[in-house]
Write a protein that binds this DNA or RNA. Structure first.
Lengths: 301, 301
DNA sequence: GCGCACAGTGTACGTCGTAAACATACAGAC
DNA sequence: GTCTGTATGTTTACGACGTACACTGTGCGC
Protein backbone atom coordinates (compact mmCIF):
# COMPACT_ATOMS: atom_id res chain seq x y z
CA UNK A 1 0.00 0.00 0.00
CA UNK A 2 1.94 2.96 1.14
CA UNK A 3 0.69 5.56 -1.17
CA UNK A 4 2.91 8.48 -1.35
CA UNK A 5 2.79 11.70 -3.11
CA UNK A 6 6.17 12.17 -4.40
CA UNK A 7 5.87 13.83 -7.68
CA UNK A 8 7.67 16.71 -9.01
CA UNK A 9 7.48 17.84 -12.52
CA UNK A 10 11.07 18.06 -13.48
CA UNK A 11 13.67 18.71 -10.85
CA UNK A 12 12.73 15.60 -9.02
CA UNK A 13 15.14 13.50 -7.17
CA UNK A 14 14.54 9.88 -6.52
CA UNK A 15 11.35 8.33 -5.28
CA UNK A 16 10.53 11.35 -3.24
CA UNK A 17 9.80 9.80 0.13
CA UNK A 18 6.81 11.98 0.84
CA UNK A 19 8.96 13.02 3.69
CA UNK A 20 11.04 16.09 3.82
CA UNK A 21 9.31 18.82 1.94
CA UNK A 22 9.30 22.53 2.14
CA UNK A 23 5.67 23.00 3.12
CA UNK A 24 4.71 25.76 0.75
CA UNK A 25 6.12 24.13 -2.34
CA UNK A 26 4.83 20.72 -1.37
CA UNK A 27 1.26 21.90 -1.02
CA UNK A 28 1.45 23.40 -4.46
CA UNK A 29 2.74 20.14 -5.79
CA UNK A 30 0.11 18.16 -3.96
CA UNK A 31 -2.64 20.29 -5.40
CA UNK A 32 -1.33 20.02 -8.91
CA UNK A 33 -0.96 16.30 -8.53
CA UNK A 34 -4.53 15.90 -7.34
CA UNK A 35 -5.79 17.99 -10.21
CA UNK A 36 -3.91 15.87 -12.66
CA UNK A 37 -5.14 12.63 -11.16
CA UNK A 38 -8.68 13.84 -11.34
CA UNK A 39 -8.20 14.76 -14.94
CA UNK A 40 -6.95 11.31 -15.76
CA UNK A 41 -10.21 9.94 -14.47
CA UNK A 42 -12.37 12.10 -16.61
CA UNK A 43 -10.62 12.85 -19.80
CA UNK A 44 -10.24 10.50 -22.69
CA UNK A 45 -6.66 10.11 -23.78
CA UNK A 46 -5.74 12.09 -26.84
CA UNK A 47 -3.89 10.00 -29.37
CA UNK A 48 -1.26 12.03 -31.12
CA UNK A 49 -0.92 11.29 -34.79
CA UNK A 50 2.82 10.95 -34.82
CA UNK A 51 4.82 8.03 -33.60
CA UNK A 52 4.07 4.36 -33.17
CA UNK A 53 0.74 3.24 -31.88
CA UNK A 54 0.48 2.27 -28.26
CA UNK A 55 0.23 -1.45 -27.86
CA UNK A 56 -2.70 -1.21 -25.46
CA UNK A 57 -5.07 1.40 -24.16
CA UNK A 58 -5.31 3.00 -20.76
CA UNK A 59 -8.42 0.93 -20.30
CA UNK A 60 -6.44 -2.25 -20.94
CA UNK A 61 -3.96 -1.27 -18.28
CA UNK A 62 -6.74 -0.59 -15.83
CA UNK A 63 -8.35 -3.91 -16.53
CA UNK A 64 -5.09 -5.72 -16.00
CA UNK A 65 -4.68 -3.94 -12.69
CA UNK A 66 -8.16 -4.94 -11.64
CA UNK A 67 -7.52 -8.52 -12.60
CA UNK A 68 -4.50 -8.62 -10.34
CA UNK A 69 -6.19 -6.96 -7.39
CA UNK A 70 -9.15 -9.28 -7.79
CA UNK A 71 -6.95 -12.32 -7.89
CA UNK A 72 -4.93 -11.41 -4.81
CA UNK A 73 -5.23 -8.12 -3.03
CA UNK A 74 -4.12 -4.56 -3.28
CA UNK A 75 -0.62 -5.42 -2.15
CA UNK A 76 -0.22 -7.65 -5.18
CA UNK A 77 -1.03 -4.75 -7.44
CA UNK A 78 2.46 -3.61 -8.34
CA UNK A 79 3.64 -1.90 -11.46
CA UNK A 80 5.75 -4.90 -12.30
CA UNK A 81 2.81 -7.24 -11.92
CA UNK A 82 0.58 -5.14 -14.11
CA UNK A 83 3.30 -4.82 -16.69
CA UNK A 84 3.88 -8.54 -16.75
CA UNK A 85 0.18 -9.14 -17.14
CA UNK A 86 0.36 -7.05 -20.29
CA UNK A 87 3.67 -8.37 -21.53
CA UNK A 88 5.44 -5.11 -20.80
CA UNK A 89 8.20 -3.84 -18.66
CA UNK A 90 7.16 -1.82 -15.68
CA UNK A 91 8.39 1.42 -17.11
CA UNK A 92 6.12 1.18 -20.09
CA UNK A 93 3.16 1.81 -17.83
CA UNK A 94 4.38 5.30 -17.20
CA UNK A 95 3.38 6.14 -20.74
CA UNK A 96 -0.19 5.54 -19.67
CA UNK A 97 -0.28 6.76 -16.08
CA UNK A 98 2.07 9.21 -14.44
CA UNK A 99 2.24 7.25 -11.22
CA UNK A 100 0.98 4.19 -9.50
CA UNK A 101 -1.49 6.29 -7.60
CA UNK A 102 -3.08 7.58 -10.74
CA UNK A 103 -3.39 4.04 -12.02
CA UNK A 104 -5.02 2.95 -8.80
CA UNK A 105 -7.43 5.84 -8.94
CA UNK A 106 -8.55 4.71 -12.33
CA UNK A 107 -8.70 1.08 -11.30
CA UNK A 108 -10.83 1.91 -8.31
CA UNK A 109 -13.35 3.83 -10.29
CA UNK A 110 -13.49 1.22 -12.99
CA UNK A 111 -13.75 -1.62 -10.50
CA UNK A 112 -16.62 0.07 -8.76
CA UNK A 113 -18.46 -0.14 -12.01
CA UNK A 114 -21.71 1.44 -12.85
CA UNK A 115 -24.48 0.86 -10.37
CA UNK A 116 -26.75 -1.91 -11.61
CA UNK A 117 -29.87 -0.77 -13.34
CA UNK A 118 -33.02 -1.88 -11.71
CA UNK A 119 -35.44 -3.43 -14.09
CA UNK A 120 -39.17 -3.38 -13.68
CA UNK A 121 -41.45 -0.67 -12.43
CA UNK A 122 -40.33 1.73 -9.76
CA UNK A 123 -41.40 0.83 -6.31
CA UNK A 124 -41.49 2.87 -3.15
CA UNK A 125 -38.35 4.73 -2.12
CA UNK A 126 -37.85 2.35 0.76
CA UNK A 127 -37.55 -0.66 -1.42
CA UNK A 128 -35.30 1.13 -3.79
CA UNK A 129 -32.97 2.40 -1.13
CA UNK A 130 -32.79 -1.07 0.32
CA UNK A 131 -31.96 -2.43 -3.07
CA UNK A 132 -29.29 0.18 -3.62
CA UNK A 133 -27.71 -0.55 -0.26
CA UNK A 134 -27.54 -4.24 -1.03
CA UNK A 135 -26.08 -3.59 -4.43
CA UNK A 136 -23.39 -1.44 -2.96
CA UNK A 137 -22.60 -3.91 -0.23
CA UNK A 138 -22.38 -6.69 -2.76
CA UNK A 139 -20.05 -4.66 -4.87
CA UNK A 140 -17.77 -3.91 -1.92
CA UNK A 141 -17.65 -7.50 -0.79
CA UNK A 142 -16.90 -8.68 -4.28
CA UNK A 143 -13.87 -6.42 -4.43
CA UNK A 144 -12.65 -6.10 -0.88
CA UNK A 145 -9.55 -4.27 -1.98
CA UNK A 146 -11.67 -1.23 -2.81
CA UNK A 147 -11.90 -0.58 0.90
CA UNK A 148 -8.15 -0.58 1.42
CA UNK A 149 -7.41 2.79 0.03
CA UNK A 150 -6.00 5.52 2.20
CA UNK A 151 -7.11 8.53 0.22
CA UNK A 152 -6.19 12.01 0.99
CA UNK A 153 -8.95 12.92 -1.31
CA UNK A 154 -10.80 10.04 -2.81
CA UNK A 155 -10.97 10.35 -6.54
CA UNK A 156 -14.53 10.99 -7.51
CA UNK A 157 -14.64 9.44 -10.92
CA UNK A 158 -17.53 8.86 -13.27
CA UNK A 159 -18.65 5.67 -11.62
CA UNK A 160 -18.42 7.09 -8.15
CA UNK A 161 -20.74 9.87 -9.21
CA UNK A 162 -22.98 7.38 -10.97
CA UNK A 163 -23.52 5.49 -7.75
CA UNK A 164 -24.49 8.67 -6.04
CA UNK A 165 -26.77 9.67 -8.86
CA UNK A 166 -28.31 6.25 -8.73
CA UNK A 167 -29.05 6.70 -5.07
CA UNK A 168 -30.51 10.13 -5.48
CA UNK A 169 -32.89 8.75 -8.05
CA UNK A 170 -34.36 6.48 -5.40
CA UNK A 171 -35.37 9.41 -3.22
CA UNK A 172 -35.91 12.04 -5.86
CA UNK A 173 -39.65 11.98 -5.51
CA UNK A 174 -39.89 12.06 -1.77
CA UNK A 175 -40.06 15.80 -1.49
CA UNK A 176 -36.88 16.11 0.51
CA UNK A 177 -34.86 19.26 0.17
CA UNK A 178 -31.54 19.08 -1.66
CA UNK A 179 -29.67 19.25 1.63
CA UNK A 180 -31.73 16.48 3.09
CA UNK A 181 -31.27 14.34 0.03
CA UNK A 182 -27.53 14.68 0.25
CA UNK A 183 -27.61 13.91 3.93
CA UNK A 184 -29.79 10.87 3.46
CA UNK A 185 -27.38 9.70 0.81
CA UNK A 186 -24.62 10.26 3.28
CA UNK A 187 -26.27 8.20 6.02
CA UNK A 188 -26.92 5.23 3.83
CA UNK A 189 -23.60 5.43 2.10
CA UNK A 190 -21.83 5.74 5.41
CA UNK A 191 -23.68 2.87 6.94
CA UNK A 192 -23.11 0.58 4.01
CA UNK A 193 -19.42 1.16 3.75
CA UNK A 194 -18.80 1.23 7.46
CA UNK A 195 -20.86 -1.76 8.40
CA UNK A 196 -19.49 -3.92 5.66
CA UNK A 197 -16.03 -4.03 7.10
CA UNK A 198 -16.53 -7.35 8.76
CA UNK A 199 -17.93 -8.87 5.61
CA UNK A 200 -15.11 -7.29 3.67
CA UNK A 201 -12.59 -8.66 6.06
CA UNK A 202 -14.06 -12.08 5.50
CA UNK A 203 -13.97 -11.61 1.76
CA UNK A 204 -10.32 -10.68 1.99
CA UNK A 205 -9.57 -13.73 4.03
CA UNK A 206 -11.31 -15.89 1.48
CA UNK A 207 -9.36 -14.27 -1.31
CA UNK A 208 -6.32 -15.57 0.51
CA UNK A 209 -7.71 -19.04 0.68
CA UNK A 210 -8.77 -18.96 4.29
CA UNK A 211 -12.01 -20.78 4.87
CA UNK A 212 -14.99 -19.18 6.57
CA UNK A 213 -14.64 -21.48 9.52
CA UNK A 214 -11.00 -20.70 10.04
CA UNK A 215 -11.64 -17.01 9.77
CA UNK A 216 -14.51 -17.13 12.20
CA UNK A 217 -12.38 -19.10 14.57
CA UNK A 218 -9.66 -16.48 14.52
CA UNK A 219 -12.07 -13.59 14.96
CA UNK A 220 -14.08 -15.41 17.57
CA UNK A 221 -11.00 -16.28 19.53
CA UNK A 222 -10.27 -12.62 20.00
CA UNK A 223 -13.78 -11.88 21.13
CA UNK A 224 -13.69 -14.71 23.59
CA UNK A 225 -10.90 -13.01 25.47
CA UNK A 226 -13.60 -10.76 26.86
CA UNK A 227 -15.29 -13.62 28.60
CA UNK A 228 -14.72 -13.50 32.32
CA UNK A 229 -12.52 -10.48 31.95
CA UNK A 230 -13.74 -7.99 34.55
CA UNK A 231 -13.06 -5.13 32.17
CA UNK A 232 -15.83 -6.31 29.88
CA UNK A 233 -18.76 -7.34 32.04
CA UNK A 234 -21.54 -6.65 29.58
CA UNK A 235 -19.78 -8.04 26.56
CA UNK A 236 -18.90 -11.07 28.59
CA UNK A 237 -22.49 -11.53 29.64
CA UNK A 238 -23.67 -11.26 26.08
CA UNK A 239 -21.12 -13.68 24.79
CA UNK A 240 -22.08 -16.26 27.35
CA UNK A 241 -25.75 -15.39 27.43
CA UNK A 242 -26.83 -18.71 26.04
CA UNK A 243 -24.84 -21.39 24.34
CA UNK A 244 -22.02 -18.95 23.88
CA UNK A 245 -20.84 -20.53 20.69
CA UNK A 246 -19.42 -18.63 17.82
CA UNK A 247 -21.25 -18.89 14.57
CA UNK A 248 -19.18 -19.66 11.57
CA UNK A 249 -21.26 -17.26 9.57
CA UNK A 250 -20.73 -14.40 11.93
CA UNK A 251 -18.02 -13.18 14.21
CA UNK A 252 -20.65 -12.11 16.64
CA UNK A 253 -21.69 -14.67 19.11
CA UNK A 254 -24.36 -17.11 18.18
CA UNK A 255 -26.86 -18.17 20.71
CA UNK A 256 -30.07 -20.04 21.00
CA UNK A 257 -29.89 -21.95 17.80
CA UNK A 258 -30.78 -19.09 15.53
CA UNK A 259 -27.69 -16.95 15.24
CA UNK A 260 -28.04 -13.83 13.23
CA UNK A 261 -25.77 -13.91 10.26
CA UNK A 262 -23.77 -10.92 9.20
CA UNK A 263 -26.22 -10.26 6.44
CA UNK A 264 -29.13 -10.35 8.80
CA UNK A 265 -27.39 -7.92 11.10
CA UNK A 266 -26.80 -5.66 8.16
CA UNK A 267 -30.46 -5.79 7.25
CA UNK A 268 -31.49 -5.14 10.80
CA UNK A 269 -29.46 -1.95 10.90
CA UNK A 270 -30.66 -0.91 7.49
CA UNK A 271 -34.28 -1.24 8.53
CA UNK A 272 -33.69 0.89 11.61
CA UNK A 273 -32.17 3.60 9.47
CA UNK A 274 -34.98 3.42 6.97
CA UNK A 275 -37.43 3.72 9.83
CA UNK A 276 -35.61 6.78 11.04
CA UNK A 277 -35.65 8.37 7.61
CA UNK A 278 -39.28 7.55 7.11
CA UNK A 279 -40.04 9.07 10.45
CA UNK A 280 -38.22 12.19 9.39
CA UNK A 281 -40.14 12.41 6.14
CA UNK A 282 -43.39 12.08 8.01
CA UNK A 283 -42.38 14.79 10.39
CA UNK A 284 -41.90 17.11 7.45
CA UNK A 285 -45.38 16.53 6.16
CA UNK A 286 -47.12 17.18 9.43
CA UNK A 287 -45.48 20.36 10.64
CA UNK A 288 -44.71 19.15 14.10
CA UNK A 289 -41.28 18.81 15.63
CA UNK A 290 -39.37 15.66 14.70
CA UNK A 291 -38.51 13.41 17.59
CA UNK A 292 -34.82 14.24 17.47
CA UNK A 293 -33.42 16.92 19.68
CA UNK A 294 -32.51 19.23 16.90
CA UNK A 295 -35.17 21.09 15.10
CA UNK A 296 -35.01 20.65 11.42
CA UNK A 297 -37.54 21.66 8.94
CA UNK A 298 -37.84 21.45 5.30
CA UNK A 299 -36.37 24.28 3.38
CA UNK A 300 -37.75 25.25 0.04
CA UNK A 301 -35.63 23.49 -2.55
CA UNK B 1 2.33 -4.78 2.81
CA UNK B 2 4.62 -6.67 0.68
CA UNK B 3 4.97 -10.21 1.55
CA UNK B 4 7.19 -12.89 0.28
CA UNK B 5 7.90 -16.50 0.58
CA UNK B 6 7.61 -17.63 4.08
CA UNK B 7 9.41 -20.17 6.03
CA UNK B 8 8.52 -21.77 9.24
CA UNK B 9 11.05 -23.34 11.36
CA UNK B 10 9.49 -24.31 14.59
CA UNK B 11 7.06 -22.12 16.31
CA UNK B 12 7.83 -18.55 16.79
CA UNK B 13 7.93 -15.49 14.64
CA UNK B 14 7.80 -14.98 10.95
CA UNK B 15 5.57 -12.54 9.32
CA UNK B 16 4.22 -15.36 7.34
CA UNK B 17 3.68 -13.65 4.04
CA UNK B 18 0.67 -14.22 1.99
CA UNK B 19 1.90 -14.51 -1.52
CA UNK B 20 2.39 -17.71 -3.38
CA UNK B 21 1.99 -20.68 -1.11
CA UNK B 22 0.98 -24.23 -1.29
CA UNK B 23 -2.63 -23.72 -0.28
CA UNK B 24 -2.95 -26.18 2.54
CA UNK B 25 0.29 -25.27 4.20
CA UNK B 26 -0.29 -21.61 3.63
CA UNK B 27 -3.57 -21.58 5.44
CA UNK B 28 -1.92 -23.26 8.35
CA UNK B 29 0.70 -20.58 8.40
CA UNK B 30 -1.83 -17.82 8.11
CA UNK B 31 -3.81 -19.17 10.99
CA UNK B 32 -0.79 -19.55 13.18
CA UNK B 33 0.30 -16.07 12.31
CA UNK B 34 -3.05 -14.59 13.23
CA UNK B 35 -3.09 -16.45 16.49
CA UNK B 36 0.30 -15.14 17.34
CA UNK B 37 -0.55 -11.58 16.46
CA UNK B 38 -3.56 -11.76 18.66
CA UNK B 39 -1.48 -13.08 21.49
CA UNK B 40 0.92 -10.20 21.19
CA UNK B 41 -1.99 -7.87 21.76
CA UNK B 42 -3.12 -9.51 24.90
CA UNK B 43 -0.20 -10.97 26.69
CA UNK B 44 2.34 -9.08 28.68
CA UNK B 45 5.88 -9.82 27.58
CA UNK B 46 7.73 -12.25 29.76
CA UNK B 47 11.18 -11.03 30.66
CA UNK B 48 13.61 -13.91 30.81
CA UNK B 49 16.14 -13.61 33.57
CA UNK B 50 19.22 -14.31 31.54
CA UNK B 51 20.85 -12.00 29.10
CA UNK B 52 21.10 -8.24 28.81
CA UNK B 53 18.15 -6.07 29.60
CA UNK B 54 16.17 -4.75 26.69
CA UNK B 55 16.79 -1.07 26.17
CA UNK B 56 13.10 -0.28 25.79
CA UNK B 57 9.77 -1.98 26.25
CA UNK B 58 7.28 -3.13 23.69
CA UNK B 59 5.15 -0.25 24.84
CA UNK B 60 7.93 2.18 23.99
CA UNK B 61 8.15 0.77 20.51
CA UNK B 62 4.43 1.12 20.07
CA UNK B 63 4.48 4.70 21.26
CA UNK B 64 7.26 5.54 18.86
CA UNK B 65 5.27 4.03 16.04
CA UNK B 66 2.21 6.04 17.00
CA UNK B 67 4.25 9.21 17.14
CA UNK B 68 5.42 8.64 13.60
CA UNK B 69 2.01 7.78 12.22
CA UNK B 70 0.52 10.77 13.98
CA UNK B 71 3.16 13.07 12.60
CA UNK B 72 2.81 11.92 9.01
CA UNK B 73 0.70 9.00 7.97
CA UNK B 74 0.73 5.26 7.85
CA UNK B 75 3.11 5.22 4.91
CA UNK B 76 5.71 6.97 7.03
CA UNK B 77 5.50 4.22 9.58
CA UNK B 78 8.41 2.08 8.50
CA UNK B 79 10.55 -0.14 10.61
CA UNK B 80 13.52 2.03 9.87
CA UNK B 81 11.67 5.14 10.98
CA UNK B 82 10.52 3.58 14.21
CA UNK B 83 14.00 2.29 14.91
CA UNK B 84 15.52 5.69 14.30
CA UNK B 85 12.99 7.25 16.63
CA UNK B 86 14.28 4.92 19.32
CA UNK B 87 17.94 5.14 18.41
CA UNK B 88 18.02 1.60 17.08
CA UNK B 89 18.66 -0.19 13.91
CA UNK B 90 15.62 -1.56 12.17
CA UNK B 91 16.45 -5.14 12.97
CA UNK B 92 16.41 -4.53 16.67
CA UNK B 93 12.67 -4.10 16.50
CA UNK B 94 12.28 -7.73 15.59
CA UNK B 95 13.23 -8.56 19.14
CA UNK B 96 10.01 -6.90 20.19
CA UNK B 97 7.62 -7.73 17.37
CA UNK B 98 7.88 -10.58 14.92
CA UNK B 99 6.79 -8.49 11.98
CA UNK B 100 5.71 -5.07 10.99
CA UNK B 101 2.13 -6.22 10.90
CA UNK B 102 2.26 -7.29 14.51
CA UNK B 103 3.69 -3.93 15.46
CA UNK B 104 0.94 -2.15 13.57
CA UNK B 105 -1.69 -4.26 15.28
CA UNK B 106 -0.38 -3.15 18.62
CA UNK B 107 -0.05 0.46 17.52
CA UNK B 108 -3.62 0.50 16.27
CA UNK B 109 -5.05 -0.79 19.47
CA UNK B 110 -2.94 1.51 21.57
CA UNK B 111 -3.73 4.50 19.38
CA UNK B 112 -7.41 3.84 19.65
CA UNK B 113 -7.03 4.28 23.35
CA UNK B 114 -9.60 3.60 25.97
CA UNK B 115 -12.98 5.13 25.34
CA UNK B 116 -13.33 8.30 27.39
CA UNK B 117 -15.18 7.90 30.62
CA UNK B 118 -18.26 9.96 30.89
CA UNK B 119 -18.47 11.91 34.09
CA UNK B 120 -21.66 12.94 35.76
CA UNK B 121 -24.90 11.09 36.18
CA UNK B 122 -26.12 8.72 33.54
CA UNK B 123 -28.61 10.17 31.17
CA UNK B 124 -30.94 8.49 28.74
CA UNK B 125 -29.53 5.96 26.32
CA UNK B 126 -30.07 8.35 23.46
CA UNK B 127 -27.80 10.97 24.86
CA UNK B 128 -25.23 8.43 25.77
CA UNK B 129 -25.17 6.80 22.39
CA UNK B 130 -24.86 10.20 20.79
CA UNK B 131 -21.99 10.97 23.05
CA UNK B 132 -20.30 7.69 22.27
CA UNK B 133 -20.66 8.24 18.56
CA UNK B 134 -19.10 11.65 18.79
CA UNK B 135 -16.26 10.34 20.89
CA UNK B 136 -15.53 7.67 18.35
CA UNK B 137 -15.71 10.04 15.46
CA UNK B 138 -13.39 12.43 17.22
CA UNK B 139 -10.96 9.65 17.86
CA UNK B 140 -10.97 8.55 14.23
CA UNK B 141 -10.49 12.06 12.94
CA UNK B 142 -7.67 12.68 15.34
CA UNK B 143 -5.82 9.65 13.99
CA UNK B 144 -6.88 9.32 10.39
CA UNK B 145 -4.34 6.60 9.77
CA UNK B 146 -6.40 4.22 11.87
CA UNK B 147 -8.78 3.96 8.96
CA UNK B 148 -6.09 2.99 6.48
CA UNK B 149 -5.65 -0.56 7.52
CA UNK B 150 -6.36 -3.42 5.19
CA UNK B 151 -7.09 -6.10 7.69
CA UNK B 152 -7.75 -9.65 6.85
CA UNK B 153 -8.97 -9.97 10.34
CA UNK B 154 -8.86 -6.81 12.34
CA UNK B 155 -7.02 -7.38 15.57
CA UNK B 156 -9.47 -7.08 18.39
CA UNK B 157 -7.26 -5.84 21.16
CA UNK B 158 -8.12 -4.71 24.65
CA UNK B 159 -9.03 -1.20 23.62
CA UNK B 160 -11.12 -2.34 20.72
CA UNK B 161 -13.16 -4.43 23.09
CA UNK B 162 -13.27 -1.58 25.58
CA UNK B 163 -14.93 0.66 23.01
CA UNK B 164 -17.52 -1.99 22.38
CA UNK B 165 -18.07 -2.54 26.06
CA UNK B 166 -18.41 1.17 26.52
CA UNK B 167 -21.11 1.26 23.89
CA UNK B 168 -22.98 -1.66 25.32
CA UNK B 169 -23.09 0.11 28.64
CA UNK B 170 -25.08 2.90 27.05
CA UNK B 171 -27.86 0.57 26.02
CA UNK B 172 -27.58 -2.04 28.72
CA UNK B 173 -30.72 -0.91 30.48
CA UNK B 174 -32.96 -0.60 27.48
CA UNK B 175 -34.27 -4.12 27.66
CA UNK B 176 -32.92 -5.12 24.27
CA UNK B 177 -32.02 -8.73 23.72
CA UNK B 178 -28.34 -9.63 23.43
CA UNK B 179 -28.70 -10.03 19.67
CA UNK B 180 -30.36 -6.69 19.34
CA UNK B 181 -27.74 -5.02 21.46
CA UNK B 182 -25.00 -6.36 19.27
CA UNK B 183 -26.85 -5.28 16.19
CA UNK B 184 -27.49 -1.81 17.52
CA UNK B 185 -23.82 -1.57 18.31
CA UNK B 186 -23.11 -2.66 14.80
CA UNK B 187 -25.35 -0.02 13.24
CA UNK B 188 -23.86 2.84 15.17
CA UNK B 189 -20.34 1.59 14.83
CA UNK B 190 -20.82 1.07 11.11
CA UNK B 191 -22.33 4.46 10.60
CA UNK B 192 -19.65 6.26 12.56
CA UNK B 193 -16.75 4.64 10.82
CA UNK B 194 -18.29 4.73 7.38
CA UNK B 195 -19.61 8.23 7.48
CA UNK B 196 -16.46 9.69 8.83
CA UNK B 197 -14.46 8.96 5.75
CA UNK B 198 -14.84 12.43 4.36
CA UNK B 199 -13.84 14.00 7.63
CA UNK B 200 -10.98 11.55 7.86
CA UNK B 201 -9.90 12.36 4.36
CA UNK B 202 -9.81 16.00 5.35
CA UNK B 203 -7.85 15.20 8.47
CA UNK B 204 -5.34 13.32 6.38
CA UNK B 205 -5.00 16.21 4.02
CA UNK B 206 -4.40 18.54 6.91
CA UNK B 207 -1.81 16.20 8.33
CA UNK B 208 0.01 16.76 5.07
CA UNK B 209 -0.24 20.47 5.38
CA UNK B 210 -3.06 20.99 2.93
CA UNK B 211 -5.45 23.68 4.05
CA UNK B 212 -9.17 23.13 4.36
CA UNK B 213 -9.83 25.47 1.50
CA UNK B 214 -7.44 23.75 -0.83
CA UNK B 215 -8.82 20.38 0.05
CA UNK B 216 -12.40 21.50 -0.45
CA UNK B 217 -11.44 22.99 -3.74
CA UNK B 218 -9.99 19.72 -4.94
CA UNK B 219 -12.94 17.66 -3.78
CA UNK B 220 -15.45 20.18 -5.01
CA UNK B 221 -13.82 20.32 -8.39
CA UNK B 222 -14.51 16.64 -8.88
CA UNK B 223 -18.12 17.00 -7.86
CA UNK B 224 -18.59 19.89 -10.21
CA UNK B 225 -17.88 17.65 -13.14
CA UNK B 226 -21.39 16.36 -12.65
CA UNK B 227 -22.90 19.72 -13.44
CA UNK B 228 -24.49 19.74 -16.84
CA UNK B 229 -23.39 16.21 -17.46
CA UNK B 230 -26.46 14.38 -18.77
CA UNK B 231 -25.43 11.27 -16.90
CA UNK B 232 -26.04 12.98 -13.57
CA UNK B 233 -29.26 14.95 -13.88
CA UNK B 234 -30.31 14.86 -10.26
CA UNK B 235 -26.88 15.46 -8.81
CA UNK B 236 -26.46 18.26 -11.25
CA UNK B 237 -29.74 19.80 -10.22
CA UNK B 238 -28.82 19.57 -6.58
CA UNK B 239 -25.43 21.07 -7.10
CA UNK B 240 -26.87 24.01 -8.96
CA UNK B 241 -30.09 24.20 -6.97
CA UNK B 242 -29.25 27.56 -5.52
CA UNK B 243 -26.01 29.45 -5.47
CA UNK B 244 -24.17 26.30 -6.40
CA UNK B 245 -21.12 27.20 -4.40
CA UNK B 246 -18.97 24.70 -2.62
CA UNK B 247 -18.58 25.18 1.06
CA UNK B 248 -15.10 25.08 2.38
CA UNK B 249 -16.32 23.23 5.39
CA UNK B 250 -17.96 20.52 3.41
CA UNK B 251 -17.36 18.72 0.17
CA UNK B 252 -21.05 18.59 -0.35
CA UNK B 253 -22.55 21.51 -2.07
CA UNK B 254 -23.49 24.50 -0.04
CA UNK B 255 -26.50 26.49 -0.93
CA UNK B 256 -28.71 29.23 0.37
CA UNK B 257 -26.34 30.79 2.77
CA UNK B 258 -26.60 28.12 5.42
CA UNK B 259 -24.56 25.19 4.20
CA UNK B 260 -24.61 22.15 6.34
CA UNK B 261 -21.17 21.36 7.60
CA UNK B 262 -19.82 17.85 7.65
CA UNK B 263 -20.46 17.67 11.33
CA UNK B 264 -24.02 18.77 10.93
CA UNK B 265 -24.57 16.15 8.27
CA UNK B 266 -23.11 13.58 10.59
CA UNK B 267 -25.49 14.65 13.33
CA UNK B 268 -28.41 14.60 10.98
CA UNK B 269 -27.73 11.00 10.07
CA UNK B 270 -27.12 10.04 13.65
CA UNK B 271 -30.46 11.45 14.72
CA UNK B 272 -32.26 9.51 12.00
CA UNK B 273 -30.63 6.32 13.19
CA UNK B 274 -31.44 7.06 16.79
CA UNK B 275 -35.02 7.70 15.76
CA UNK B 276 -35.09 4.35 14.03
CA UNK B 277 -33.69 2.56 17.03
CA UNK B 278 -36.08 4.30 19.37
CA UNK B 279 -38.91 3.34 17.13
CA UNK B 280 -37.75 -0.24 17.27
CA UNK B 281 -37.55 -0.20 21.04
CA UNK B 282 -41.06 1.19 21.22
CA UNK B 283 -42.30 -1.52 18.92
CA UNK B 284 -40.96 -4.10 21.32
CA UNK B 285 -42.84 -2.69 24.24
CA UNK B 286 -46.18 -2.53 22.52
CA UNK B 287 -46.39 -5.93 20.87
CA UNK B 288 -47.29 -4.65 17.46
CA UNK B 289 -45.28 -5.20 14.33
CA UNK B 290 -42.38 -2.84 13.76
CA UNK B 291 -42.65 -0.75 10.65
CA UNK B 292 -39.89 -2.63 8.87
CA UNK B 293 -40.67 -5.52 6.65
CA UNK B 294 -39.09 -8.15 8.80
CA UNK B 295 -40.72 -9.26 11.93
CA UNK B 296 -38.46 -9.18 14.86
CA UNK B 297 -39.34 -9.59 18.40
CA UNK B 298 -37.55 -9.59 21.61
CA UNK B 299 -36.16 -12.85 22.77
CA UNK B 300 -35.64 -13.58 26.37
CA UNK B 301 -32.05 -12.61 27.14
C1' DG C 1 13.24 9.24 -47.98
C1' DC C 2 14.04 12.29 -43.78
C1' DG C 3 13.40 13.64 -39.26
C1' DC C 4 10.99 14.04 -35.22
C1' DA C 5 7.60 12.61 -31.83
C1' DC C 6 6.34 9.13 -29.36
C1' DA C 7 6.43 3.84 -28.03
C1' DG C 8 8.59 0.70 -25.11
C1' DT C 9 13.35 -1.10 -22.92
C1' DG C 10 17.42 -1.37 -19.91
C1' DT C 11 19.62 0.02 -16.17
C1' DA C 12 20.08 2.18 -11.92
C1' DC C 13 19.04 4.24 -7.38
C1' DG C 14 17.07 4.57 -2.88
C1' DT C 15 13.87 2.41 0.21
C1' DC C 16 11.33 -1.18 1.98
C1' DG C 17 10.70 -5.65 5.09
C1' DT C 18 13.35 -9.05 6.95
C1' DA C 19 16.68 -13.52 6.91
C1' DA C 20 21.19 -14.85 8.73
C1' DA C 21 25.25 -14.47 10.97
C1' DC C 22 27.37 -11.97 14.28
C1' DA C 23 29.14 -9.36 18.57
C1' DT C 24 28.07 -8.21 23.13
C1' DA C 25 26.26 -8.09 27.78
C1' DC C 26 24.58 -10.10 31.69
C1' DA C 27 22.44 -13.97 35.18
C1' DG C 28 23.20 -18.03 37.22
C1' DA C 29 26.30 -22.33 38.08
C1' DC C 30 30.62 -23.44 39.53
C1' DG D 1 35.65 -14.74 40.48
C1' DT D 2 35.36 -17.23 36.20
C1' DC D 3 32.73 -19.82 33.01
C1' DT D 4 28.75 -20.42 30.10
C1' DG D 5 24.50 -19.98 27.88
C1' DT D 6 21.05 -17.05 26.44
C1' DA D 7 19.01 -12.65 25.06
C1' DT D 8 20.21 -8.32 23.11
C1' DG D 9 21.21 -5.20 19.33
C1' DT D 10 24.30 -4.77 14.85
C1' DT D 11 25.98 -5.89 10.37
C1' DT D 12 25.35 -7.42 6.11
C1' DA D 13 22.63 -8.98 2.52
C1' DC D 14 18.67 -10.05 -0.52
C1' DG D 15 14.77 -9.45 -3.41
C1' DA D 16 10.96 -6.46 -4.46
C1' DC D 17 9.25 -2.10 -4.83
C1' DG D 18 8.35 2.80 -7.36
C1' DT D 19 10.36 5.43 -10.66
C1' DA D 20 14.31 8.67 -12.82
C1' DC D 21 17.08 8.72 -16.89
C1' DA D 22 19.03 7.46 -21.02
C1' DC D 23 18.37 4.54 -24.59
C1' DT D 24 16.33 1.99 -29.03
C1' DG D 25 12.99 1.59 -32.40
C1' DT D 26 8.89 2.84 -35.07
C1' DG D 27 5.95 5.24 -38.23
C1' DC D 28 3.51 9.71 -39.65
C1' DG D 29 3.96 14.35 -41.87
C1' DC D 30 6.87 16.40 -44.66
Amino acid sequence: MTRKTGRKTQSSRTAAPAAQRKAAASVEIAREELRQRSELLWEAPVRPTRGPKPAVTREDVVQAAIRIADGKDLAALTMHAVAKELGFTAMALYRYFPSKEALIDAAVDAAMGKPPERSGPREGWRDEVRWWAHAKRTMLCARPWLAELPFVAAPHGPNWLAWHESFLRTIADTGLSPEDMMDVLSVIHGYVSGSSDTAISLARAQARGISVEQWAEAVGADLCRAINDPRYPILSAILTSDSGGISAASPLPARQGKPRTMDESFDFGLERILDGIEHYMDSLKVPRRPSGRKQRRKVAG
